[in-house]
């Protein structure tokens, strides 16, 4: 029963991890930009949820709409105004650029909100449900449900909409996409904005689970990294598989080695994978 409970916890964690990684993976896969800002975007989403709850009593699941929209706009402006100027440069260049932007944004948040951890306490927590001895923390279950919905939404968008097809087309062949009349710079901006939207939404959902502080951004970024390497780059199903794999691994890792080592374990796996299977578990570059 314990093992089953751990598996369940791992799956729940993994559903949230998938949401962390999916936007990061999209941006990396389509733009060839490793977005160091991603972790800070997530934290910003959490703060939006925190203040929306504190001042207006908006439930974090509802403020997903606010944090998603704000981050979408912020992401669009950053890509269209700044990153597009160097987007064709080698990946190290754009990595350095987003690293610099991350320093700015993260430090601005440190000044504005301090590094102190804040906790969003729900007044009407759903509590937990006992399912034949398995404990289901209902807030978390609902959060994972919402995360799955958002992830699925992105998946459908990429597959079934005009703009989604254009994003995939740009990922596969920029010049051919240009010949179809796709404005690549605009698609870059929309893609980056979608990545930021997913980060913001993840931040909102996370605000009911984790304490909020700008110093968490590195942790989130690290997880997104590991998940992309686990699941392969630039595909929604890849991010889901990678996310769930990491969630389960961390949960069992915490059981066997102690919770303080679960993050270390994740990075050990990352390094092992990079050495032995650099294309990810799926082994194929997906695209959706």
């Amino acid at each position: 029963m314990l093992y089953l409970q751990i598996l369940l916890n791992g799956l729940l964690l993994g559903g949230l991890y998938a949401l962390i990684a999916v936007g990061f993976s999209l941006v990396w896969g389509v733009l060839n930009v490793i977005n160091i800002l991603h972790g800070t975007f997530i934290v910003l989403g959490s703060y939006i949820a925190y203040f929306a709850h504190l001042y207006f009593g908006i439930h974090p699941f509802a403020s997903v709409i606010i944090s998603g929209s704000v981050l979408f706009c912020l992401g669009y402006v950053i890509q269209a105004g700044i990153i597009n100027r160097v987007v064709a440069a080698p990946v190290l260049m754009t990595l350095t650029l987003t690293f610099g932007l991350d320093l700015l944004l993260n430090n601005a948040m440190l000044i504005a909100f301090t590094a102190d951890y804040r906790k969003l306490i729900l007044t009407d927590s759903l509590g937990s449900y006992d399912l034949w001895g398995l404990i289901l923390p209902l807030n978390r279950v609902a959060g994972v449900g919402l995360a799955a919905l958002l992830t699925f939404g992105l998946y459908r968008l990429l597959r079934d909409s005009n703009i989604g097809r254009a994003i995939v087309a740009v990922r596969m062949d920029r010049e051919a996409a240009t010949l179809m009349g796709v404005r690549v710079n605009r698609i870059n901006a929309v893609t980056f904005a979608l990545g930021a939207l997913m980060a913001g939404a993840a931040g909102s959902i996370f605000s009911i689970i984790y304490p909020i502080s700008p110093i968490n951004s590195g942790l989130f970024l690290g997880k997104a990294f590991v998940i992309c390497i686990l699941g392969g780059l630039g595909s929604v199903p890849g991010a889901m598989i990678g996310g769930i794999a990491l969630g389960v691994i961390e949960s069992y890792g915490a059981l066997f080695f102690g919770p303080e080592h679960s993050t270390t374990l994740a990075f050990v796996i990352l390094i092992a994978l990079l050495i032995f299977r650099p294309t990810g578990i799926m082994g194929r570059k997906g695209y959706e």
Binding site: V168, L179, G286
Partner: peptide, 14 residues
Amino acid sequence: RLFSAMSVRDNLLM
């Protein structure tokens, strides 16, 4: 220069 991992139909729609 087809979009190789996209379906034939999606290529045509592009």
